[in-house]
Amino acid sequence: MMESVFILLLLSTFRLSLPLILASIGGYFSEKSGVAQIGLEAFLLVGAFSAATATYLSHSLLVGYMAAVLASLFFAQIFCLLVLKLKANSIVVGTGLNLLAIGLIPLMSKSIFDSTGSTPALIDINTTALLPIIVLAVVVLGSLYVSEKTLWGLQIKFAGEKQEALLAVGVSPAIRQWQAISFGALITGLGGAILSTYLASAYSPLMSAGRGYIALAAIIFAGWDLRKTILISLFFGFCEAIQIQAQSNSLIAAQIPAEFIQMTPYLMTLLALLFFRTKQQAPKELK
């Protein structure tokens, strides 16, 4: 009995961590390049909606994933244009981007499906775990390699730490930031695609449920370290899995209210900020 609960919890942790891991890796690249990213929620939402819509219309999961990438890249270009070119504040633009995604998606679903924010269920489409697992493996290994082993990864870090050093070698920090934000949005959009096509079988309103902010919490909790960010996202996924398990178990539900489990990632991040001086680990040019 205990073993089956444990295996269920493990599998559930893995499933629920998928969008979180991708969103936190996406946010990591933007933050590491020196641009504060609170628009992760928007990338997740547009990724989820466009993946569900494109998959439903084309009957192909691959097309859905590509649509998620394109949609989140488009949103990232709005963010980059405003923050990097027009010098608007990244927090203000990030907040606006979240509002835009929340408002625009129901309008689009109304005009495409005549629904109030959801897409039709993906019934005939084979949504196996294979594609999400491949995506996760490629993204995790790829981003670790890019971040730690390539010149581009190093330059992204310099854009966030000391921009003069980049300028001295003839590289534009703004271009590296543009690339980092776009790359991050692309990965986060894939997280959104997994949310609507693997964790669920349709897009439902506000289905990211604050995962963009949890991903940001994971980055900060991890002290802007990519490996730790991935591990902490797994832990936050575990918290979500426990919460779902607790809801189905009336004994546990009576002992620990779901709201307290829901707030664990945020509370833990605050405790991490309280007990470890993570400010010193934050990119110096982070604005």
Binding site: I78, L82, L86, K87, A88, N89, V92, V93, T95, G96, L97, L99, L100, I102, G103, L104, I105, P106, L107, K110, S111, T116, G117
Partner: peptide, 25 residues
């Protein structure tokens, strides 16, 4: 026929963007 109250958020987002960018110009 096609627009809903969600348009309010779109409106506010676009105003936030334009106001934030207006200082640059």
């Amino acid at each position: 026929q096609f627009l809903t109250r969600d348009f309010s958020q779109v409106l506010q987002a676009l105003i936030i963007f334009s106001v934030a960018a207006s200082y640059f110009f």
